[in-house]
């Protein structure tokens, strides 16, 4: 079963859900309707459109001018900005959720960005490609070259992704900076959630990407 089939989303007709990316559907399902959301690195606004269909007040930041202008031309509230430098301009608790979808690995300071997400938002939703995925490991182990996949086709010298991590690495970072993981989902190559009852190392091996719902840990 794919995410599209697993997750019935309010506001999104069943036939429509196939138009959206698996991780977007998963993220949209994690956000409570009626809340206020900031999507950091919103690309061309696909996730924001999905959120708005669900009655969520969505805002976006996007680095590329073309992406921003396409979002604004769709009527979305998106501004041009950089996750590394512009999150500091947002006040504490400005949003219910701050989303970082497939962008963490492209930031210069992932740890600072993550801390900012949970300062601006009461919750953060982070998704990223898992470098511990078996196909990645195999390419490095057998092929002896930096891994490239359908979702990450760029070569090592022209990729925007400068801080790859595995699901295990990310879980460790969350522990270090006292971030609570409320929900964790690993999606396999076909966008299907890896079954919940399996141990972490299986997730880290078979999850092509990780999607995490985070909140501030105790004492924060």
């Amino acid at each position: 079963m794919s995410v599209q089939e697993v997750l019935p989303l309010g506001g999104v007709a069943t036939g429509q859900s196939g138009d959206f990316r698996a991780d977007h559907l998963l993220v949209a399902e994690m956000v409570k309707p009626g809340s206020k959301v900031l999507d950091v690195g919103c690309g061309e606004g696909d996730l924001l459109q999905l959120l708005e269909m669900r009655g969520i007040d969505g805002r976006g930041i996007e680095l590329s001018r073309e992406g921003v202008n396409r979002c604004v031309a769709k009527g979305l509230a998106v501004v041009q900005g950089d996750a590394d430098t512009d999150l500091v301009n947002y006040p504490d608790d400005a949003f219910d959720y701050v989303i970082l979808s497939q962008t963490l690995q492209a930031t210069r300071q992932p740890r600072v960005v993550l801390e900012n997400l949970l300062r601006i938002g009461r919750r953060a939703i982070v998704s990223f490609p898992n470098f511990g995925f078996w196909k990645m490991r195999l390419q490095l182990l057998i092929g002896g070259h930096m891994p490239r996949t359908e979702n990450l086709p760029a070569t090592w010298y022209d990729t925007a992704n400068i801080h790859f991590c595995t699901i295990k690495d990310f879980v460790q970072l969350c522990d270090e900076i006292n971030v609570k993981m409320e929900r964790s989902v690993a999606l396999d190559l076909y966008g299907r959630p890896v079954p919940l009852n399996l141990p972490w190392w299986v997730w880290n091996m078979f999850g092509e990407q990780g999607v995490f719902l985070l909140s501030r840990g105790e004492g924060k």
Binding site: R65, V68, V72, V78, Q80, N89, P91, F95
Partner: peptide, 15 residues
């Protein structure tokens, strides 16, 4: 735009 963000205003900004 930074000031509007700091006020949590709903803002679109295109260059």
């Amino acid at each position: 735009v930074h000031a509007l963000n700091a006020s949590s205003a709903r803002v679109s900004f295109a260059e």
